Computed example of a mutant assay.
Amino acid sequence: MLKLSQLSDILELQHTCEQHDGITLKLNWDMLKHRSPGMQEDFFSYEEGKLVSFLALYGFGRKIEVCGMTHPEYRRQGHFSRLWQQAIGSEAITRMNRVLFNTPHNSIAGQQWVQSHHARLDSTEYSMKLEHGEHSLLGQFEGKEIAQLRRFREEDTDLWARLDADAFGISEFSTIAALASPSRSLTKIMLVIEHSGLAVGKIEIDRQDEHSWIYGFAVDPALRGHGIGRSALRQVALQEHARGNHVWLDVSATNPRALHLYESCGFVQQDIQDYYEYELPQT
């Protein structure tokens, strides 16, 4: 579990880097705030009491994502590379079979560092924000919603695991273990999508200040294309908008079906994140 002072230092460094570089860093704050005890997943470099470089590991099943940043005034001094050398030998990485570096598409420093480590571009992800417009989910809707939403219950675990495996390639075992973990986020809202009385999908909401991020959105493959997902998405968007929050989500550039759905719902691309696969040294 990270200390409040560490979280504050990370946030301050993030704001400095984002303003200087004109980028958006994906630091998965929901995960940072709820780290599991006993596993080192965060690495810090301080100079005279000031955080100048930070590297974080985020596990998703047997895959781990690496993200971080270095203060503009302290770059090219080896801070981030030293953190990576600490991280690469940690248990959090050695138990994984896949490592992905995450860096904003427009981050010159991030892209240069990744390329210096001979990583291969694996995928690209768009961050999208819901805007007002002719077809926006925030517009008036006079029909009847065909999806109903309710809170996740323990008996939904198997459904959750199956949908995660189908939509995101996360093993059912990993999802079940994460749901059973005592460190599971209590701030993330987990909703089950129902249609005609049957549980057919899932959607998660993570509120960060005035922003609401939608995660883990999936509908049973047999029922896609019938408007169930759009109905659920609209209800969540209106709920979060009523709170005064901006609604965001991420979508893979290689998922044209989802990308088309979100664009048709009024989501507009704001940022691009690149993921590079790193081949771990053979031991």
Rank of each mutant, 00 (worst) to 15 (best):
L2I: 06
L4Y: 07
Q6R: 11
S8V: 07
D9G: 05
T16I: 15
H20T: 15
G22S: 12
I23S: 03
L27H: 03
N28P: 04
W29D: 05
D30I: 13
K33A: 05
G38R: 09
Q40A: 13
F43G: 01
V52W: 02
A56S: 13
L57W: 01
G59E: 10
G61H: 02
K63A: 08
K63R: 12
C67D: 06
M69E: 03
M69Y: 05
H71P: 04
Y74T: 04
R75I: 11
G78M: 06
R82L: 09
R82S: 10
W84Y: 12
Q86P: 00
A87H: 02
G89A: 07
A92M: 09
H105I: 07
I108Q: 13
G110F: 01
G110T: 02
G110A: 06
Q111K: 11
Q112S: 08
H117M: 14
H118I: 08
R120K: 15
D122I: 06
D122E: 15
S123P: 01
S123A: 14
S123I: 08
S123E: 10
Y126H: 11
S127L: 14
L130V: 07
G133L: 09
E134C: 09
H135W: 11
H135C: 10
H135R: 14
S136A: 08
G139A: 15
Q140M: 10
E142G: 00
G143K: 01
I146N: 08
I146C: 09
R153P: 03
L159F: 06
W160R: 05
A161H: 01
A161Q: 00
R162F: 04
F168Y: 10
F168W: 05
E172K: 11
E172D: 05
T175M: 11
T175Q: 04
A178S: 12
S181I: 07
R184M: 15
I189R: 12
S196C: 10
G197N: 09
G197V: 07
V200D: 02
K202G: 00
I205E: 01
D206Q: 13
Q208R: 14
H211T: 07
S212V: 04
Y215A: 07
V219H: 02
V219L: 07
P221G: 08
G225V: 06
G225P: 04
G227F: 00
G229I: 02
R234C: 02
A237H: 01
H241V: 05
V247D: 01
W248I: 05
V251I: 06
P256N: 05
R257T: 13
A258M: 05
H260S: 13
Y262G: 00
G266A: 05
G266T: 04
Q270T: 13
I272E: 03
Q273R: 07
Y275D: 01
L280E: 09
